[in-house]
């Protein structure tokens, strides 16, 4: 699963010092911002499944939406296939839109309830002229078949379908343009585990068949253990730790990562063994408007030192390919 061929080493997405701030009024003359994404560097290689993990307020979705062009970056750059795309989606070329697609979290609101599945799937085909006008219907059936749904689903309304089926339609729509890079924004977090398993398997199959690259956004570390090639952890707009999956779960370094791991409810003794024992989850996630000085995690950190309260740590390469942003390792 983790065999990355030499050809696939090529970088497809590079995010450099990306900042996305949202103004939220003023306090005594100085403007206040939600620093949703605050200086993120991220590289995704071709053919990879990069797992981006974080809790609410970590900025993982904002990062994804900025890459997609839904928000424009406050600072920094997004390089996609060697091309700078740090502009909102309305100013991007059709070919970038074709190559870069997203599957949203909530299958309820990502499909227009007043359209039929056929209308929904036709849109990308028409906009990007994927097939001739007269072959559109055939292509819609092919897309449905790709996500293992029967052809008559094209007459259904999203409202009449189950959550899992809706998410399959979302996936079919995202893949209709034959993209190279797909952002999956918690595609299964609203679904039951038995359905999640089916959808994930399908996503993996499609990734292999179509040589896709995924940026998989989630809060579920157990899921990432099983499908990601690399895992990145975000906390309050910044990346804490990033490493290849095996390495990441073998030796998690950042205290926050360990807290996350120890909080996961598991279903077997073997998993229980893997959870860091001494770490107990404490404290609240601070509001991203009012980020603590120094290391933003220091309020909850069991290994806090003097320096953590004043100096924001920087990224260091603790092991080859294993980066961590913590004073313990610098």
């Amino acid at each position: 699963m983790n065999s990355i061929t030499a050809a696939a080493e090529e970088t497809i997405l590079r995010v450099q010092n990306l900042k996305t701030y949202f103004p939220v009024g003023k306090s005594g003359g100085t403007p206040l911002f939600v620093k949703a994404v605050d200086g993120v560097n991220l590289t995704v290689k071709k053919g990879e499944i990069m797992g981006l993990v974080g809790e609410s307020g970590s900025g993982k979705s904002t990062l994804a939406y900025t890459v997609m062009g839904i928000y424009s970056p406050t600072e920094g750059s997004i390089i996609f296939k060697g091309q700078d795309i740090s502009v909102p989606s309305s100013r991007r070329s059709l070919s970038v839109k074709k190559d870069l697609q997203i599957v949203f979290q909530d299958p309820g609101s990502s499909l227009n309830p007043r359209q039929s599945v056929r209308q929904i799937l036709e849109l990308p085909l028409r906009v990007h002229r994927i097939v001739d006008r007269k072959n559109i219907e055939e292509k819609v059936v092919e897309l449905l078949r790709m996500v293992e749904l029967p052809p008559h689903y094209m007459y259904k309304s999203p409202v009449s379908m189950g959550g899992g089926e809706r998410q399959m339609i979302s996936i079919a729509r995202a893949l209709a343009t034959n993209p190279q890079f797909v952002i999956l924004d918690e595609p299964t977090s609203a679904l039951d585990v038995s359905i999640q398993a089916k959808i994930i398997n399908m996503l993996l199959k499609l990734q292999e068949k179509k040589e896709l690259t995924y940026l998989f956004i989630t809060h579920d570390l157990s899921l990432m253990r099983n499908i990601a090639t690399r895992v990145t952890i975000m906390y309050l707009g910044k990346i804490c730790e990033t490493a290849p999956t095996e390495e990441f779960f073998r030796s998690p370094l950042h205290p926050y990562t360990r807290m996350l791991l120890s909080s996961i409810p598991v279903v077997s003794e073997e998993e229980e063994e893997l959870k860091p024992k001494k770490v107990v989850s404490t404290g609240e996630i601070p509001s991203p408007v009012n980020v603590p000085p120094g290391c933003s995690f220091h309020l909850r950190c069991p290994e806090r030192r003097e320096v953590c309260m004043e100096v924001d740590p920087w990224m260091v390469e603790a092991e080859p390919g294993h980066f961590v942003r913590c004073h313990l390792y610098s």
Binding site: S194, Q196, N201, R225, V267
Partner: peptide, 23 residues
């Protein structure tokens, strides 16, 4: 059994098939 199998494990081992169909 199906439900338990579908839960992704922290120990790895890939994804199970899930349960066919829906409620």
């Amino acid at each position: 059994l199906g439900l338990l199998e579908s839960v992704p494990r922290l120990t790895g081992g890939g994804m199970a098939e899930g349960i066919y169909g829906r409620i």
